[in-house]
Structures are given as structure tokens and as C-alpha cells.
Design a protein around this nucleic acid. Structure first.
Lengths: 141, 141
DNA sequence: GTAACTGCAAACGCTTTGCACTCCC
DNA sequence: GGGAGTGCAAAGCGTTTGCAGTTAC
């Protein structure tokens, strides 16, 4: 998603296009590891020294309302923000908390057959797999 | 799970068998709707007027360590406690937050084939489906 | 010009922690 | 009798809220 596309979405929803908003959106959309508000804050502080956590939370809330991202709570205390709204599996390392998305045709096929059995189309779904990532395995050995 | 079974588990792990602990365990194990700590607290206060939230949190933490229950964070602020450790789908009403477990052969079959594709056995998994329950639909109409 | 947005700080809500008292074993 | 467990209250921590000052349009 490029700048112009984001700007259009804002304008369509009568939201003002501010430097902070653009920066936060571009950052979250570009990341596949579902950062927390605090991680976003620290990542942007260098380029935008006056940015505040409050603004980040407000912007993330907005993006969720617009249906561009979803909030995910894992077992850690903070909320993670996921810009992928399509069907996928969240691969979560139970040691370090690292997350990446797993997307495959068979997941889609399996899911369709479950939905068929259920008898209705759910609004949304969430699939997590907890495992130990390679980095954490290495540290152990 | 009956009292004796729970008592045995406690003894095996060198944990003392207290009235509160038994009550909390029996309650959570008997419920399929994944209550929060506060819901457990209010449900038990009538029969055990001196019970405290602190004890409930400590006991739930213990049960998680023993592998008897799992903590689940949904998009609401509080943690829900799920006594079902086997593969199942959490059916979550996105309006009222009500939860029940959906267990079916096809889910197991689907999951096995995804695991096969992944190439390793995950430690744990979580599958949620968000929908609108009948009660909430009725209120709307 | 003005309504929306930002940044700051205070408030909030759930969970965890510390400690003196109590009770199981 | 001694150590683990309970209950209470305080602390902790991520998130939300309120508000005065600022900025997009």
C-alpha cells in the first residue's frame, strides 16, 4: 500500500491527513510481525521525535474501525496489531513471542469445509499455532 | 472430573488441598464458557464469602502450570480461562462475548493435514470463530 | 476560522506482588 | 511446628481518556 492509497482512504472517511497518521499507517502496514503499540512508538520516535503513545493508540483504533488492521491479544500483556485481514495462521513462538503469518491454499480449503459444516459464514476468525522458533531452539542447545 | 481426582493431582504435585482451591478448580472445570477471574470470584462469593481475587488468580496460574487449563485473551480486557486442552474451536459472539467450544471430527482431520504440511508438531494451537449469537440477533431485530 | 488532531498527563481496569495471618499436613 | 496458602492492599502496566494547544483544510 503506497502513500496515495492511504491518503485516499483517509479522505474518503473525512479524516485529516497528518504526518503522524501517515507514518503510523505506513509502518504497521509494512510489517508482518504484528508489532505492539510500544514497538511502533519506539520505531517511529527517531524520525518523529514528538510522536506520542496516545496518538499511536488513537490511530490504531481508527485503523481497526476502518477494517484495515485487527487487534490481537496473545498471552503477553500487550496488544499486537495485524495488518493482514485475510485468512491466515499466526505462527507464534511461545518463547520469544515472535510472530509471522502462514498462508497456504490448503488452509483456505480446510477452512471452507469447516464453514460449510458450521452452516453459516463467521464474521471473522483467528488461527494461532504456538511453536518454538529456530532462534530460540538454537539458544537452548 | 470429581473431587478425588483433583485431590490426587494436588497431592502428586505436593500442593495443599484447601477449600478455596478445590472450589475454584471444580468451578472452572465444570464450565464450558471460559469464565474470567472476576466471574469466578462473583460466582463463588456466595458459598465462600471470604474468598479473594488474589487467591483466584494464584490458583488459576497454578492450574495453567499444571496444564489443566489455558489462558485465553480475547479482544476484551480480561483473561478467559478454558479447561479444554484438546483441539477445538472457540465460538465467540462478537457482540456479547459469550463463548462455547465447537468440537467435530472434521476439525481434527483438517488440523492433522495442516500439521502435516507444516512439517512439525506445534506445542499448542488456538482457533477462534467470531459470529453473532442467537440471543444478540434477537435483541437486534 | 474552525473542527479535528496531537501530545501530555491523569485516570482506569485487570493482574501481579508483598506481607502478616491462618491452616493443612 | 513449620511451611504453604489465603486475604488484603498496594503496586504494576498497558491502554484509554480529557484537555489545552496546534494544525489541516
Amino acid at each position: 500500500m503506497d502513500d496515495q492509497e492511504l491518503i485516499n482512504i483517509f479522505r474518503e472517511n473525512r479524516l485529516k491527513v497528518t504526518t503522524q497518521r501517515l507514518a503510523i499507517c505506513k509502518f504497521i502496514v509494512s510489517r508482518a510481525d504484528h508489532p505492539s503499540a510500544d514497538q511502533i512508538y519506539h520505531a517511529l520516535k527517531t524520525d518523529y521525535p514528538t510522536i506520542s503513545l496516545g496518538t499511536i493508540y488513537k490511530t490504531l483504533g481508527l485503523l481497526e474501525e476502518l477494517g484495515l488492521i485487527q487487534k490481537l491479544r496473545f498471552n503477553e500483556s500487550s496488544i499486537r496489531y495485524d495488518p493482514d485481514m485475510e485468512l491466515h495462521i499466526n505462527m507464534v513462538c511461545s518463547k520469544c513471542g515472535k510472530i509471522y503469518d502462514y498462508k497456504a491454499d490448503n488452509v483456505k480449503k480446510m477452512w471452507d469445509s469447516i464453514i460449510l459444516d458450521l452452516g453459516f459464514k463467521p464474521k471473522r476468525q483467528r488461527i494461532d499455532i504456538y511453536y518454538e522458533c529456530d532462534d530460540c531452539k538454537e539458544i537452548e542447545s
